[in-house]
Design a protein around this nucleic acid. Sequence first.
RNA 1: GUCCCCAUCGUCUAGCCUGGUCCAGGACACCGGCCUUUCACGCCGGCGACACCGGUUCAAAUCCGGUUGGGGACGCCA
Length: 474
Amino acid sequence: MAQVRTRFSPSPTGALHLGGAHTALFNWLFARHYKGVFILRIEDTDVERSQEHFVEEIKESLLWLGLDWDEGPYFQSERLQLYQEYTHKLVQVGAAYYCDCDPEDLEERRQRALARGDKPRYEGRCRERGLGPGPQRAVRFKTPQTGITGWQDQIKGPIEFENHELDDLVLMRADGIPTYNLAVVVDDITMGVSHIIRGDDHISNTPRQLLVYQALEAKPPLLGHMPLMLGKDRTKLSKRHGALPVLAYRARGILPHSLNNYLARLGWSHGDQEIFSREELIQYFSLDHVGKAPGIHDDEKLLWLNSHYLKTGDDHELARQLVPFLASLGIDSPDPEYLAGVVATLKTRSKTLVEMADAARFYVQDPRPYEPEGAKKFLTPDTGPILQDAVRALENQADLSEAALTGMLKDLAAQAGVKLVAVAQPLRVALTGRTASPSLTDVMALLGKDESLSRLSQALDYINQSRHEVLSNT
RNA sequence: GUCCCCAUCGUCUAGCCUGGUCCAGGACACCGGCCUUUCACGCCGGCGACACCGGUUCAAAUCCGGUUGGGGACGCCA
């Protein structure tokens, strides 16, 4: 295969969301697999809606996902001259013509046709008028009205359209800015794009673009239309389906590779494999295992992948990634070594970094106020003696290893003649403020002897205090 | 409405091209059990699908046709 050159070409009219990330990923994977080039191109010909800050957000999103580009970003708004040249060429060879139809009038006709149940299309009023350039004049493509335009889609297989289904699309607006259909073609030709991989919502544009290639006597790239991602309601994924911008997933505490792995497996597969490293994704990716049917976005599966990567990730690396999440809870990042230890105890219990940060609170903050239910149930006059015994035992405990602490807990239970759980829960609430937490042996080891002892006496104070409150209330 | 695309468990999917090895495999979710100092993790098990009709064939999830259903596109948006 000649050099592979793919591109991702978002329009900066909104944030990069899941659907965009999906196509970006497939293009990137394809380019990386074939050791080709991945191009970023910003399609900002919609002057009205394009915004600079969206460009930044798109770049940031791609970088966060690790989808680095080799060329670009190119901006269509900086290539207007080029589109003009191509437009003139098309007019010269008789493949395009000037049109002065009133856009509002056209819009009205379109609405009427739709209401009537007809296929709305430009009737070709200016097609044979031989108009020259002038103000308020757009350039339309003279679509052949006979014959068939088709291609071998790299994902869907053969697709064909009858040319008479197509109308004369606008290539160049009256204001001299090209439309999408012209700009893509010119760009893909001049940038030497070898493979266009895009959503299948572009299928109906494809015959038009192919016809433009023909008129330009240019060889079109290979085309692959990937199935769309649908929302739970099975319609095209859009803003109204929830937290969709890629950066929203970052904010939720999703790891970038979790999202990549998730997105890769939506519409693509490699046998029964679910978990892929970045390298494996590159190694295995190809268009022949991209499916044709649309997929529905499933947050649960994403969360599962994320918890998998949390579980299997490196403690220090995860600790580093956890820092901003702690910060947003108002917690200064503790010593990296200590935080890695904290992470080690939390990684199997968290689905996101947000959850992990929240679960980490008690390690670096006062466990009070205690979880009300837990305090009510486990920090009572009945459990006071157990806590007192625990204080004594811990004071004499020199070895804070897992085995030693487990032994200590078991001895405590044996001496009190109760089950281990009866000792563990009061201690847990005293130390962590909660009824659910990592293993107590881990907690005590990390907190250290002094801090643990101080939390136990805090809890004893709490018990005494509430007893007095009860007494004074009665 | 017209054109185009699609159709395997609730969801993501393997298998389909090169029919038999599939009374359809994996994963998420869900349910049950085990493990257990709590919560999780983990482990074991369970539930659960070839949209429908016809054709081709000794044989069809796999090939063909139709029906139904879903989606997408019909902009001087991309």
